[in-house]
Amino acid sequence: MGTVIVDPVTRIEGHLKITTEVVNGVVTDAHASGTMARGLESLLIGRDTRDAPYVTERVCGVCFGSHGWCSSLAVEAAHGTTELPALARIMRNLIVGACFLHDHPLHFYHLSALDYLDLATLVNYAGTDTYINKIKQLIIDNDAAPLLPRYEPDGFSINDLDTVASAVGHYLDALVMQVKAKRMSALFSGKQPHQASIVPGGVTYLPTAEQIAEFRTMLVEQTDFINNVYIADVVALGTGPICLWQPLTWG
């Protein structure tokens, strides 16, 4: 089959190209190339160190929080700070923890799941979910972008109607949950994406009692979703392709 190139690899943050060498149906070599550079690292050379978390935060707008947080730790280490105030540590953990609630399900549902689901199966949907019926109609009208077109479904795609309908339903639910998780984090950090309150040395903000109460309420809703929907789907779908059409061969 020769060389197979996927460029762009979509549903990631950034720009990626994958080149594989295929011999008799077996991948014998593979290369991954990041095809974008911004030069953020060299931008920081010689700058005021307090700018580092602001710039580094912007490495990724999907897993926001993490980069600014780590950059702050690096600046603190460089300045010889060995211990943060306990409140700053707790606040940072809550800010970044809410980001994890946002981007782990987002990675699973919005970035990965579409590779494993044969959405065209939904033309046979006979249930009552408004949004899934909407998708069904869009597929019939040939107007289902950005969900279709896609690569032809292969032996790794799930085309069991109930499984696809349930997973797509959760894809849509997760779209709403990720909005709420961003709000949770913003309650303590100013805004999301790209928080403002984590600075070298600690956190700028002490939230109000109302904000802490709202954070708690929203956390319960997120935890319910994670425990009852996300984990079940990860176990069902994320542990490997469900219907292998042939045993995997390792080249």
């Binding site: 460029d7 979509t10 909407k134 690569y151 849509l172």
Partner: peptide, 25 residues
């Protein structure tokens, strides 16, 4: 956000949300 993706506009190309990749995209 569900209405945005399904109803409001037809997003023909968007690297982060489109199902297609490579030459299909």
């Amino acid at each position: 956000p569900r209405d945005v993706i399904l109803d409001v506009v037809s997003i023909r190309y968007h690297e982060t949300i489109m199902a297609a990749s490579g030459y299909v995209a």
